[in-house]
Design a protein around this nucleic acid. Structure first.
Lengths: 148, 148
DNA sequence: CCTTGATATTTAGGCAGCCTAACTGTTAGG
DNA sequence: CCTAACAGTTAGGCTGCCTAAATATCAAGG
C-alpha cells in the first residue's frame, strides 16, 4: 500500500513531466521559426566548430542516425557554413569543419536564441529562476537515462 | 555593470535551458517511437474526449494550424478512434468526439507513457524529484509566455 | 598478396507532421 | 439580399527523421 502510494505519486509526477515535454516541443518550434538556422542544423554546426568532427560522431551525439546527419551536413555545406574533407588517417571517414561563416552563424544564432529565452526568463521571479536552475541538471540526467 | 552581470547570468541560464529543451525533443521522440499513437494524435484525441471539440479549438489548443489538426483528426477517424459530426448550432463547424475505442486508446497510451517516464523518475533521488516537481509549474508559465 | 568481414559515408525512397494558399459552404450584418 | 467574416477541407510543399542498399576503405587471416 505504501508502495502503491509512492507509485501513484510517481505517475502523477510523470504526467506533469510529460506535459512539460509537450510544451518544450512547442517552445523549440517557436524558437526555430524565428531563425534562419534550424536547431537541427545548429546542432550539427556546433559540433563542427572544433574542426574535426566525423559524421558518425555527430549523429551519435545528436541522437539521430547517420543519414540524417549527412543530410544536415550537406545543407550546411551548400550554405557555405561547413566544409567536408577526407580524414587523413582513414579515407573512409569525412572530417566536417565549420568555415569562418559557419562560426559566425553559430555565434549569431546562439546569441539570438539565448536572448529570446533570456527575455522570457527575465519575466520570472528569482525564486522561479532558481527552481529552473535547480531542475536543469536533473533533466540532463533524465535525458542520459533515456538514451540508455 | 550590475545590469550586465544580471544579463550574463540570465543568458547563461538561457543557454542551459535551451540544452534542456533540445533534450526534451529527444525524449519526446523516444516516447513516440515506442507507441502506436503518436503524441500529435494523442493530443487531438484527448481533446475529443469530452465529446464536443471543434477543429479550430483543437488546433488552437495544440498550437498548430487548422489544417494540421484536420490531418490528425482524419487519421484518428480512419482508425475508428474519433467520429466527426455536424455541429447542430453552426453547420460550418464540426464536432469531434472520441469513440469508445478512442477513449480506451487514450487511457492505454497515457498509462504506458506515464509508466515509461515514472520508470525514469524512479531512479532519481527524492531531492532530484523535488527539484523537477518545483520546476514544472515554472515551465508551464514559460510556455504560456511563449504562446503570447 | 588477396579475400572477407567490419566500418564510414552517401544515396534512394518513404513517412510524419507542420505550413500556406486556395476552395467550399455557412453565417451574420447592413 | 449581398457581402464580409468564419469553419473546415483540399492541395501542394517543406523539414527532419528513418531503413535499406550501394560505395569505398580498412584490417586481419590465410
Amino acid at each position: 500500500m505504501n508502495t502503491n502510494q509512492a507509485d501513484d505519486a510517481l505517475l502523477a509526477l510523470a504526467q506533469s513531466f510529460r506535459e512539460a515535454l509537450r510544451q518544450s516541443v512547442y517552445v523549440m518550434r517557436r524558437l526555430d521559426s524565428e531563425e534562419q538556422l534550424s536547431s537541427a542544423q545548429l546542432g550539427v554546426l556546433k559540433m563542427a566548430l572544433d574542426g574535426g568532427a566525423r559524421v558518425g560522431g555527430i549523429a551519435r551525439n545528436l541522437g539521430v542516425k547517420v543519414p540524417s546527419a549527412t543530410e544536415q551536413i550537406i545543407k550546411l555545406e551548400r550554405a557555405g557554413l561547413v566544409k567536408r574533407e577526407a580524414d587523413p588517417d582513414d579515407s573512409r571517414a569525412v572530417r566536417v569543419a565549420a568555415t569562418a561563416a559557419g562560426r559566425a552563424a553559430v555565434e549569431n544564432a546562439d546569441r539570438r536564441r539565448n536572448e529570446f529565452i533570456a527575455g522570457i526568463l527575465g519575466t520570472l521571479s528569482q525564486a522561479e529562476r532558481d527552481a529552473v536552475e535547480a531542475a536543469l541538471p536533473v533533466f540532463d540526467k533524465i535525458n542520459h537515462s533515456v538514451q540508455n
